[in-house]
Structures are given as C-alpha cells and as structure tokens.
C-alpha cells in the first residue's frame, strides 16, 4: 500500500534462481532512500527553518492559513497530476479559472446562488470537453491547444467583465471563510479532492489504465484500454476541478477581477506536479507526493512572507527548488541502468 518500494529481496525468486556466488542479503539502498525521502525531509527542514526565524510559523492557525492559500491550487493539481501521468498536460487552467470566476460573478443576480454555481461547473466541464476532444479524441498537440485556450479564455473573461466583479450574495461568500469542525470549507474541499485522487490512482483499476497510457499509449490501446475516452475524461475532470477552484478563489477574495484572477495558476500547478516527481512524459507518479510538493510551495511562500522576504526572492527560490528536484531524479534514472 505504500508508495515507495525499497525493492525487498524476494525469497521465492532467490530460491528459484540459485546462484552460488550471489549474496542473499541485499544492502539497504541509501541513495534511493535519500532521493525518495528528499521531499518530506525538505518539508520538515523548511518548517524548522521558518520556526527558528519566525516562531509564529509553527502554529495550527498558520497551518490552516497555508491550507487555505493552496486549497484552490490543490483542487486543480490533483486531476492535473493524473492527466500528466497519462502523458498529457493542460496549460489553460489559469484562464479557465478566470472565465469560470467571471461567469459565476455575473450570474449570481439573475440565476441565484445554486443556478450560478451549476452554470460555473458547466462552463468548466465544457472547457474540459473542448480541450479533451481536440487533444485526446482528434489528436492535436496538448501544448498548442491549451496554450491557445489560455490566451483565448483570458480574453473571453475580460470581454465578459471588463471591470472587477464583487459583492457576492452572503450565502455564497461564506464558502470563503466558514468552518466545519474548526477547519475551513476550502480546506475540506481540498482534502476531499485529494482523497478522491488517491483512491482513483491507487485502488481503482482506472488508475492503472492512466499509468499504462502514459507509459505506452499504443500498447494500452491494444489491450482494450479506451485511450481516447480516458484522456477526454481526464481533461473534463481538470475542467470541472478548475471551475470548483474558481468558486473557491472568488469566495475567498470576495471578488472576481477578470484581469488578474488565476494568473500563473497553470505554472504553479505544473511546478508542484513536476516537483512531486511526475515526469513530463507521464507513466508514473503519486498524487500524495504532488500534494506534498504543493504544500512545500505553500509553506515557502507563506514563510518567506512572514520573514518579510520580498516575493521576487521567493520566486527565485521556487524556481531553483524545481531544477534541484529534477537533478535528484536524474541521479535515480542514471543509477537504474
């Protein structure tokens, strides 16, 4: 059930392949251990570092703060990670988030809160359907299609609402601050999405099919995996998650500025996914590690703000962390052969 597999010596194998000179005991693989543990260790070390500098960092309240800051990102990152495991990418989520936020903001008055929420979710699903149809069904390039979508939907959002929208109904706005059992709604949504992602990837057959597509799409097709449908549904999941994230975002800041809402989200999400160890070509990965990576990014920006470090430096550190993590993974692949 655990994600890491420190290749246990298999007794059945060893006895089936008697080789007199081979040692029975396998030395513990320290390099593999450190590479696998690098991410959790980084989280702990960074936590300690911030705690020493700003003691208030290490508090329940600040943990909740971080979780609220990354909740919308996590909601998108989980399905987007699954999409990348299947070898595809969605760069349009930032603008799709803006478009969904604007649609919600514009429709509260006429449709009421439930109607506006449903419409927003429908817009997200439609966006995912369009991306998925062009890419997975028709075979266009994921990068080109979603890069186009990124620009197109930003334009559409700004055209629909040239000025920032605000003043949402109270029954909706409380999504942004209300708590249940002491934990904000936003955090709960993030937890549920994360659990669904883990469940799908680890315990449901479809999780294996997603990995299979990422490793070898042709072979997956030839064993009966519905490759196009799976890809389409993944894009739809990302679209739906983005619309949920849009609702979360506009509720939290209680406004929907079409020009700035969701800007850069696609890159932050992609950074977390890659930092979480999913290769750009797909075929492997763990949703939990992506969540941990996103938590690391959240901690980094939160802690640096607490330390009054300018955001420019925070950006530089984030970028360096990503490249460093890719370097660690290179050691692993080099050693494998």
């Amino acid at each position: 059930m655990t994600d890491q597999r420190p290749a246990m010596p298999d007794d059945a194998t060893a006895s089936a392949a008697p080789s007199p000179t081979s040692p029975r005991h396998r030395p513990f693989d320290w390099v593999e251990f450190w590479i696998t543990a690098a991410l959790p260790i980084a989280v702990v070390l960074l936590g300690v570092f911030f705690y020493i500098n700003v003691p208030v960092f290490f508090s329940w309240r600040n943990a909740i703060n971080i979780s609220v800051q990354i909740a919308a990102l996590m909601t998108i990152a989980v399905p987007a990670a699954m999409l990348l495991m299947a070898g595809k990418v969605d760069l349009s989520v930032g603008s799709m988030l803006a478009l969904c936020g604007v649609v919600a903001g514009l429709s509260f008055e006429t449709l009421g809160v439930p109607g506006a929420v449903l419409l927003t979710l429908a817009v997200g699903i439609l966006g995912g359907l369009i991306n998925g149809t062009l890419i997975s069904v028709m075979g266009m390039s994921p990068i080109i299609v979603t890069l186009g979508g990124l620009t197109l939907m930003r334009g559409l959002a700004q055209w629909l609402a040239p000025n920032p929208l605000f003043g949402f109904p109270e029954s909706f706005a409380k999504l942004g601050y209300e708590r249940w059992l002491g934990i904000p709604y936003l955090t709960w949504i993030m937890i549920v999405v994360l659990l669904v992602g883990v469940l799908v990837m680890r315990f449901l057959p479809v999780g294996r099919r997603i990995i299979a597509i990422g490793i070898n799409e042709r072979a997956a097709y030839l064993v009966g995996v519905r490759v196009k449908l799976t890809g389409l549904l993944l894009y739809v999941a990302v679209g739906l998650a983005t619309s949920v994230a849009a609702l979360m975002s506009i509720a939290r800041i209680n406004s929907a500025p079409s020009g700035t809402l969701g800007v850069g989200v696609e890159l932050t999400v992609l950074t977390a996914i890659l930092l979480g160890g999913i290769p750009f070509t797909g075929g492997k990965g763990s949703v939990l590690r992506v969540a941990l990576a996103l938590w690391l990014l959240g901690m980094l920006s939160n802690g640096l703000i607490l330390m009054n470090v300018p955001t420019e430096l925070s950006l530089m550190i984030t970028g360096a962390v990503l490249v460093f993590a890719a370097g660690l993974d290179l050691i692993r692949t080099r050693r494998a052969r």
């Binding site: 057959p205 479809v206 294996r208 099919r209 990995i211 299979a212 490793i215 070898n216 042709r218 072979a219 997956a220 030839l222 064993v223 009966g224 995996v225 075929g283 492997k284």
Partner: peptide
C-alpha cells in the same frame, strides 16, 4: 506495442482484465 516496461509484471499481465 505490448509491454508497459516500467510497471510490474503482474500489472502488465492484468492490464486488460481490471
């Protein structure tokens, strides 16, 4: 066309059957 190289033998075997 057939093999998923990086995942386990048992998953390779069962891929069409999940």
């Amino acid at each position: 066309q057939s093999l998923f190289g990086s995942i386990s033998a048992v998953e390779n075997l069962l891929m069409p059957h999940f």
